[in-house]
Design a protein around this nucleic acid. Structure first.
Lengths: 161, 161
DNA sequence: CTCGTTGGGTTGATGTGTCAACCCGGCCCG
DNA sequence: CGGGCCGGGTTGACACATCAACCCAACGAG
């Protein structure tokens, strides 16, 4: 009907393969996490960040920086996670609450991380192999840098307001 | 606190770069579409599929196959798009309705596609360059195939029930 | 002092995705 | 003929994301 293509054939093909891969991989990993451990990708990301910090506690805006989430999304998600007992918001001297991982949260991530990592390796890292994986890392950084450069002078993206 | 890493250092680094890239690219493209044309990535995907079909009309399950969406998601999204006048569900002789792109829908995608493609090129295709882009296409297909192989004998994934 | 501004954070409305249940017409098998 | 199952599709309830508005303490300038 409408006569694309808006990219030429080779580009189009590779781009669509990439799109399909990201979607497939993401839904696969997420379903696994959800089905086997009852965690969403978002839960996982928060828990990873907290568990990697020294004290298991961070301020919300630190999480916001490292996850690149909007603050409202973060706030909503943290209240949900608190209800499920994965984290706790604890008051501390200086006004803002600290977000602390709970025993349950720590147990959850320690339980699911190895299986998750194994899947990442099986379906992604090992398929790429070390060489192509290295290239992927480099090119990923370039893409991020390119978008970042463009956005500095153009649009706010991650509300760094 | 918890002492990952669950992948070794190089793998971890490349994997996280990849994650960051996909998220950055996706949100960037989606914001662009939304801000400049009022279309979500999902709208775009449906409209692309319809506009690429001969007649501009498809059955829902064809869309479901080519987008890989669950049928309920598709159904919900189509009713929303119909409300916005981008598509129409038209009854036809054989029981199930056909999904037809409207004039407005066609106009919308014709308007936004060039700009979208330009962005994909600028921030992704050109950063990769032709060689790495080719490799990406290949490896993407391999990853999809690997996941597919695993899921055939294990989990349903795209409800091919 | 006071008023505007900024930064960290919450809230509510609304749009979107997911899951499970359901509807219904065809089809196969007894 | 009478079920039982299957495939295409819808629905409702709920989880999640996004946007804009708001709260409030701190700070800086007049």
């Amino acid at each position: 009907m409408s006569k694309g293509p808006w990219l030429d054939d080779d580009e189009q093909k590779a781009w669509r393969s990439y799109l399909l891969m990201t979607r497939t991989l993401e839904t696969h990993l997420e379903r696994h996490l959800q089905r086997d451990f009852g965690l969403s990708k978002s839960d996982f990301e928060i828990l990873v960040n907290l568990s990697e910090s020294e004290s298991g506690r961070m301020r919300a805006f630190e999480l916001s920086r490292s996850t690149q989430w909007e603050k409202s999304r973060l706030s909503h998600h943290l209240t949900r996670m608190e209800k499920r007992g994965l984290i706790r918001k604890e008051a501390c001297e200086s006004r803002y609450p600290e977000i602390a991982i709970t025993e349950a949260g720590l147990a959850a991530i320690k339980e699911c991380a190895p299986a998750h990592a194994a899947r990442v390796r099986e379906f992604f890292v090992d398929v790429f192999g070390p060489d192509r994986m290295t290239v992927l890392g480099e090119v990923s950084d370039e893409v991020v840098a390119t978008i970042g450069k463009h956005c500095d002078t153009d649009c706010p993206l991650a509300d760094r307001s």
